[in-house]
């Protein structure tokens, strides 16, 4: 049995293996630009000194408001506070024109999932970082990449899937049934 007879077979094998592990999974995602640049690090930490909940607030009824609306930003940035060009642009483009920026939300869950922040944060005392990682310390917004087929963000597809929820719940002995989290 000569290797040469299977040369074309193995070359096909090698090429598809290489492509299948590197290029193609990336091609599943497309990048969508954020409407403006934003540095969490500039707001939190020593420099900004703000807490997550200062902007990502809970409403009075306990529901989570998510990404803040323009009015929250405008509360401080009615005029540029610092000297960066991106801040200036944000004030000109959005605050002055009262145009709501359409942020792409990295961790937006599917419509059919019920994730109450109040149960996990207020009662469960979970830290934001537990699910959202070090997003709050990032100096610039990472690329928002959306799966071309599913339409979900890569952040959700990579670490905030049902399996991840279930793993945590199992660990704590909290899982009961599908309806616990599905709506």
């Amino acid at each position: 049995m000569k290797i040469a007879r299977f040369l074309s077979y193995f070359s096909g094998l090698a090429i598809s293996l290489a492509a299948g592990w590197t290029v193609l999974p990336q091609a599943l995602y497309k990048e969508v630009p954020q409407p403006a640049s934003f540095s969490h690090a500039a707001h939190t930490g020593e420099k900004g000194g703000m807490q997550c909940t200062d902007c990502h607030a809970f409403r009075t009824d306990g529901s989570f408001a998510g990404v803040p609306k323009l009015e929250t930003c405008a509360g401080c940035h009615a005029e540029p506070v610092g000297e960066t060009a991106s801040e200036k642009r944000f004030v000109e483009e959005f605050v002055k024109k009262e145009r709501e920026p359409q942020w792409q939300i990295y961790s937006r869950q599917p419509d059919n999932a019920w994730f109450p922040h109040s149960v996990h944060v207020t009662r469960g005392k979970l830290a934001c970082e537990g699910c959202h990682g070090s997003h709050g310390k990032s100096a610039a917004l990472p690329a928002y990449r959306v799966n071309r087929i599913t339409g979900y963000s890569q952040t959700v597809m990579a670490g905030m899937r049902m399996d991840d929820c279930v793993a945590c719940h199992r660990q704590r002995g909290l899982s009961h049934s599908c309806l616990d989290c599905h709506k």
């Binding site: 074309s8 077979y9 070359s11 094998l13 598809s16 492509a19």
Partner: peptide, 16 residues
């Protein structure tokens, strides 16, 4: 045909 066969076998062992 051999090439295609190899490629198909290979793909099955990728996440794609």
């Amino acid at each position: 045909i051999k090439f295609a066969g190899g490629a198909a076998t290979g793909l099955a062992f990728t996440p794609l």
